[in-house]
């Protein structure tokens, strides 16, 4: 990998969004993910190489450090922001088909439930691992999930619930989605959710943390 891509990977790993960004202090005044991506493109690096050799491995490292409790969420969010700044320059190549997303992930907190912190963490980590994420927000009914799946064939769906009373809402939504899309992959999570509940409502995968969801999707995309 070229020095430039190494530098880009470092900028993403440590959350250096652009030259003006004050964080991290050790990279103050240096080019960030935005400038480095632009430079790499100008020097002829393939967009797919920028993504596969620099951005995704950097986010993998970030995910790994987070799993090992070596960094907190803000560092991960900054890394995701840096990744976003780089992706801004790569967007036209997705549209032209020069590079491909790993897939589309549709995520929402189920109807009746307003909790969004866990959902946001999951979407951020999945986006960082190369998936296109559609975040439907909170209090999401079956109709909204179904409508979005129709518009994004082949997508994987994620659902979150934090209340015991909204677990039943999750169960209903999974059933409604299954009726329309019997083979769609559905990942669920949230404080009261268990493996047993996952089996009971015929979801495909339960993850107690965002990293588990990323790992599952990686295996799906492999």
């Amino acid at each position: 990998m070229s020095d430039l891509l190494l530098k880009l990977a470092e900028a993403v790993e440590f959350g250096k969004v652009d030259k003006n960004a004050p964080y991290p202090p050790q990279l103050k005044g240096q080019d960030g993910a935005s400038e480095l991506t632009q430079q790499a493109l100008e020097e002829g690096a393939l967009p797919s190489a920028i993504l596969q050799d620099a951005l995704i491995p950097a986010m993998d490292k970030v995910g790994q450090k987070f799993s090992e409790n070596k960094i907190f969420v803000p560092q991960m969010l900054l890394a995701a922001k840096a990744m976003g700044a780089a992706m801004f320059h790569l967007k036209p190549f997705f549209q032209s088909g020069d590079i491909k997303s790993k897939g589309t992930f549709i995520m929402g907190t189920v109807k009746g439930d307003l909790h969004d912190i866990g959902k946001n963490l999951v979407t951020m980590m999945i986006e960082g691992s190369g998936w296109t994420v559609i975040d439907l927000g909170v209090d999401v009914p079956s109709t909204k999930f179904i409508e979005t799946i129709k518009a994004n064939p082949g997508a994987v769906v994620g659902m979150s619930a934090l209340l015991t009373t909204t677990m039943t809402s999750m169960q209903d939504i999974v059933a409604d989605v299954r009726k329309e899309f019997p083979d769609i992959k559905i990942i669920i999570g949230g404080a009261p959710i268990t493996h047993d509940f996952c089996k009971q409502i015929h979801a495909d995968f339960y993850s107690p943390d965002p990293q588990g969801a990323v790992k599952y999707l990686k295996e799906l995309a492999a």
């Binding site: 015991t164 009373t165 677990m167 039943t168 809402s169 009261p192 509940f197």
Partner: peptide, 8 residues
């Protein structure tokens, strides 16, 4: 206290 898993 709260309810077990159930709809209202």
């Amino acid at each position: 206290f709260t309810l077990p898993t159930m709809s209202i």
